[in-house]
Design a binder for these strands. Structure first.
Lengths: 128, 128, 128, 128
DNA sequence: GTGGTCTAGACCACA
DNA sequence: GTGGTCTAGACCACA
């Protein structure tokens, strides 16, 4: 699976990395129990610092998405798709509320917004 | 319209403020051509720094959502709901892609995600 | 409140620091809404690196014990004593099970173990 | 007695193993003078490295809990329950202090903490 | 002035 | 070989 980061983005490098990995899982490119590159290897591959990769991995660990083993390396949790966090839906709703407000202010109403959402899901399923 | 900010939030104050204003517009509490409080007044009302309010207003101005006029003050643009930015839908799709990835990794599939989106729109329409 | 760390300890510096702060709260030396020293000040005071202090603070933030505000600094959460984590009691029981096993293997039975626990609480209440 | 280790745990394998053996003794599943499997056998049985088992055994030997004899193998010390280490109670108190601090910060007071401790002892006695 | 991010580089424990 | 911890030092956004 190809991981890409944009050094010029406003988004922190470690956040981009975490996003990409979550995206890879959502699209099915990364599956439960799949191994991830070691901290050092991924860092040198992406041309960024070890600690930045480590920070991304630790964030995903906290979210229960990956398993980090000090001597055996990193892999996708076998429980990635489990419905764990009770609080998550509340956070999600708040984030969607912000996106929806912004969309309305940009002339994008409910129909079109739902269209974009469905489009994203469709692309993910097709592995695009 | 009541604007509320949470100084304990992780979100920057100026971002909160911009979000609240966009939300107010989306819900219909703020309408095209409605005036907004002056930078000074809003700052003292919220107990925050003038620069913070100014930063929020400037962000909204750049988005074409409000009009800032030195002598006549600040007001909602008459073209708020216009479908201006050709680039916006691309940004929106990227943001939704991130939210969807995260949701899938937390056990929330398409049906439930769409449910949350529809719920947000419903609450907005009912002015909740 | 005096924070002390032991550079020669097996325990990581950032863990020691987090422990000391939790201990200070438990004894009542640090109270809800009390400010904590800035990352840089505490680091120079303890003669350790900024990042180490930052890591300790971030751990406590994740636990909901302190509030970190990028521009206003760090303080004890007003909800420190709230009964938040549903999973915490399970973790606690496991840790106690390990301690109890070890104690029994060292000739310390239930009575004496409970004595030590009560003693710890007593010392905390008296602010010792 | 069944020894189980969890390769996904945050805890080092050798620590888990030592904990399990102490726990087995505390519950009475392993008794003074009982033999333990050889390093090689236990390692292959658990599917882990010999060095890991060896490290766990050596830790327990240093604690005076097991006896390692090159020709006669490994067995539980006949003096396991003896009150040997004068320093142990100090270490125990420090560990309990940390647990208690953390518990208080999570809304668990003295009564509830003591309840958990008593519960652990009860489960051990009943061989659960 | 505050914490956040990133880099470069060292040393360590576990397996 | 693996991730974890710690340091030193730089630059940045927010207020």
């Amino acid at each position: 699976m190809l991981l890409q980061i944009d050094v010029n983005s406003e988004e922190a490098l470690y956040t981009q990395l975490a996003n990409q990995i979550r995206y890879g899982i959502a699209r099915g490119y990364l599956q439960p129990d799949d191994p991830l590159p070691s901290v050092r290897n991924l860092a040198s591959e992406l041309g960024i610092n070890m600690h930045t990769v480590s920070k991304a991995y630790n964030k995903l660990k906290e979210e229960g998405i990956i398993i980090i083993n000090r001597s055996k390396g990193v892999r996708i949790s076998s429980k990635v798709f489990a419905d764990r966090k009770t609080g998550y839906e509340t956070i999600l709703e708040e984030k969607i509320r912000q996106l929806v407000s912004q969309s309305i202010c940009n002339g994008i109403g409910e129909k079109r917004f739902l269209g974009v959402v469905e489009n994203v899901f469709k692309k993910m399923r097709s592995g695009e």
